[in-house]
Design a protein around this nucleic acid. Structure first.
Lengths: 246, 246
DNA sequence: TGACACCGATGTGTGCTGACATCAAAACTC
DNA sequence: GAGTTTTGATGTCAGCACACATCGGTGTCA
């Protein structure tokens, strides 16, 4: 055993197995033995068992007596878990994952804007307006890093301001999407002026307590976002498998 | 120790702790000791440790050396996890959870309908139309159990037909919402005829490959659903806390 | 005398191991 | 073919060694 480590063995085991399962390297139906995992990962039973239990709770594997640890098909995985999302973004399923996230955002943000216009506290409304103006300035100046930072802040405020805890919890994924979009050069060098104005429109509609206006402006942003990102996943096949849990 | 049990000790430990944490019985910041949990649950260390590991992955607790197992505040919980949702629905946070789910549905279903109109396979389109007609018949006949069954089937087809795996995964939660709404007598005895027609509209727009129409009809269903269910959670305070993960 | 830095004791999670219980698949018997 | 036994995997238990954050005592310096 190693003397010191940055992350716990438990965490490393989860990461190792989760990555390989999500990458498809360990296909659905593949069966592993706990004992075999012990020597493969060079860790003890406790570590393997605790890791398997977590993966089980994520729907990645199931354990059966007398059989072993069975890898489950992708439609059993919890697609909302941030670990699963991270593993998929890192590997084969990146395109499909990006599309799923973008479509979820498309659905959620306009409704979040609508809710924020009705419910958000005064401070968030004010901050939204400020940030949207700063975004416009940074965008027109071509200051990409600053723009990205403000963009993330804007959408975080929007999701938080909805007062819906599930929406608020999507902040991390949205931030990852926005960052990824910038890093992969999917953003135009200088954000379109129309898009900048739409952000201002959303903020001002929320500040004015105008749900319909906030929703419409947000919907416009989302549609353009989808249009810009679509090339990234254009070849990804869609899957129409019902999700059933035993 | 008991001789036989229907569920594993591990599962029971998760259930016991998860329920009590989500119910607020173990408040945020509360510190438990693994040793203490052993005797409280009358199980061994392995069981406690594996259960704590799972709860940790759900964001319900964190472990710190020399301190113990600390209960985390609600904004750290994973609001998309089906176990957490179930625990919340069973207890104190029922109203807030129902509202969150309903708002998420409001956001997602119109977009799912839009996507289904573009992407769904022919078979799902056909089945949607059939089910929507059967719903209309059952609704007009006042056959509530049959209507509920068809309603769940309809929305499952819609979410699956979107081809978005995250949407498809919401089938279980939607089914639970629809069932709960019926059981708690929030449904009018005989579904409104307008709502029945909207379901047919959604199905036929999808079958005809008309995204905008499908979205609009679905949006109408969602708005009426919200209006009907709102009394259930009218007094629930909203929380505007940013979600940040360390 | 008081404030501060150092350092060791203490307790708790982390990890390892050997043993036994349980239960379902597979092999066997009739 | 049906029922029974065997087998082999996970499930559970209990004890140990280790790492390390916290606390409190001790020493040093002003």
């Amino acid at each position: 055993m190693l003397t010191t480590m940055s992350t716990s063995l438990h965490h490393r085991a989860i990461e190792h197995l989760g990555t390989r399962i999500v990458a498809g390297e360990l296909p659905a139906g593949h069966i592993m033995l706990a004992e075999h995992l012990e020597e493969e990962l060079q860790v003890s039973r406790s570590v393997v068992r605790e890791a398997v239990r977590v993966l089980q709770s994520l729907g990645l594997v199931e354990t059966t007596k007398r059989v072993g640890i069975r890898v489950l098909p992708a439609n059993r995985w919890n697609p909302f878990d941030s670990q699963v999302i991270r593993w998929r973004l890192a590997g084969e399923g990146r395109g499909a994952q990006l599309r799923s996230l973008a479509e979820l955002r498309t659905a959620v943000e306009p409704v979040a804007a609508e809710l924020a216009a009705t419910n958000a506290p005064e401070e968030i409304r004010r901050e939204l307006v400020e940030v949207s103006h700063a975004m416009r300035d940074a965008g027109r100046a071509g200051d990409v890093p600053r723009f990205l930072e403000l963009d993330i802040h804007f959408h975080s405020l929007l999701l938080t301001g909805s007062g819906n805890e599930m929406f608020a919890n999507m902040v991390g994924q949205v931030a990852e999407t926005l960052t990824g979009r910038t890093v992969h050069g999917l953003m135009p060098d200088r954000p379109r002026d129309t898009a900048l104005q739409w952000h201002v429109d959303v903020a001002e509609a929320i500040a004015a307590g105008n749900p319909a206006g906030a929703r419409e402006a947000s919907d416009r942003i989302m549609r353009q976002t989808i249009a810009e990102m679509e090339p990234e996943w254009k070849d990804q096949p869609r899957v129409f498998v019902p999700v059933t849990r035993p």
